[in-house]
Structure formats: C-alpha cells, structure tokens
Amino acid sequence: MPKASSGLLSRSLAVYFKDLRLELRTKSGLNAIMMFGVTTLAVVSFALGQSGLSPKVLSALFWIIMFFSAMSGLAQTFIREEETGTSLILNLTAEPNSIYIGKLLFNLTLLITMTTIITPMFFVFTDASTDNILPFLVVLGLGVFGLVAATTLVAAIISKASVKGALFAVVSFPILMVLLMVLVGATEKIFDNESLSAVSSELQFLIAYVVVMTTISLLLFKFVWRE
C-alpha cells in the first residue's frame, strides 16, 4: 500500500492491483462471468441458429447476453470483501474515493476481458456481420463503460444486503434499462450497416450517461462504504 500522502490515482491503482492479484489467484470472478456469457450464447445459438436473424433481434440478443453476464460477475469484488471480512481493514487503509475508483477499474477490466472473448464468439455463432467494425467497437466500448459505471455502486449496496445474488440484477435493472434501450437501438443501426454519424445522438447519450453515473457514484459511495 502506498502512503496516504501519495496521489488519488496511485492509491486507486493500489486497490485495483490488490483486486487484480486476488482475481488472478482464483479467477473465480472471471470464470463465473465467462461461463455465464458462453452459456447464454450457446442457448441463443442452438435455439435460433444461423437462421438469418434480423439486426433488431441480433442487437437485442447481444445486449441480453452482455447484461446477464455482467450481472453474474460484477458484484463479486464487493461481496468478497464482505465475506472474507476484509472491508473493515480496507476501510482503515484507503479512503472511499480511491476504493471506488479501484473497484471501478477492476470491474472494467473484468467486463472488457469477457467482452473481447464473447463478442467474436457471438459473431461466429449467430452469423451476424457488419461492415462498420469501428463504430461497433465504439458503441460496444461505451456500453461496457456504461454497464460498469452504473453497476459498481449498486454492487457495493448489494454486498451489504442479505440476499445478494438475485437482488443485484433486480436492483440494477431499473437503472440500466435506459442504457440498454439506447444500446440496442444503436447496435441495431450498426448491424444495418449505417455509418457512425447515424448513431451520433446515441453516442452523446452514452457519454453523458457514463459521466453522470460515475460522478454521482463517487459522491454517494462513501455513504455506502462507511455503513
């Protein structure tokens, strides 16, 4: 752990690397999130197959897979602190802001890793295609940021409750629904081979959403963490 006098970034990174090291020891979070993604993808693929799905259906399926995979793993990092009883010690050694940023980066790493593996598989299994690789990656990247920005605070709340697993999806969904609606719309346009300028208002929304959710989470996190 760096000294308290060092900058916010280095303290956040200390929390991040601690979580990353823990994750690499067991890989429990990544395994859960990966297997969930693969399972959902398999169900989608053998139920619907390569039957020439429309862009609308494809984009909806893609974000359903992303949503449920995210729900299966993103609460892990906080739940682990509670279960192993380390949250008190973390509380003594780091202040809430750096814990939040560290956890946010960790969840981001987890979801990006999952996405880089699941997305090519999705294209293979459902025979989806698009000429707009770059716009797709931009929307995908902002979508991943949005999912993580909105669920990290909820994960912290959930880790203090008694029935954690089911509650995480239930409590996150109302907050994520706006995001998912916009993401499904934007991805549909991209699968329809429209250019980046066609989704510019969606991109503006996504950036605003990420910024607003991260800021409000930073403001509120200390109230959750001190409980």
Partner: peptide
C-alpha cells in the same frame, strides 16, 4: 436507511 437512501438518489 443509508443504503436505500443512496439507491433512491442514484435511481
């Protein structure tokens, strides 16, 4: 009280 307050503001 604290957690539901945070959630209500966040939502």
């Amino acid at each position: 009280a604290a957690l539901s307050a945070v959630y209500s503001i966040f939502a």
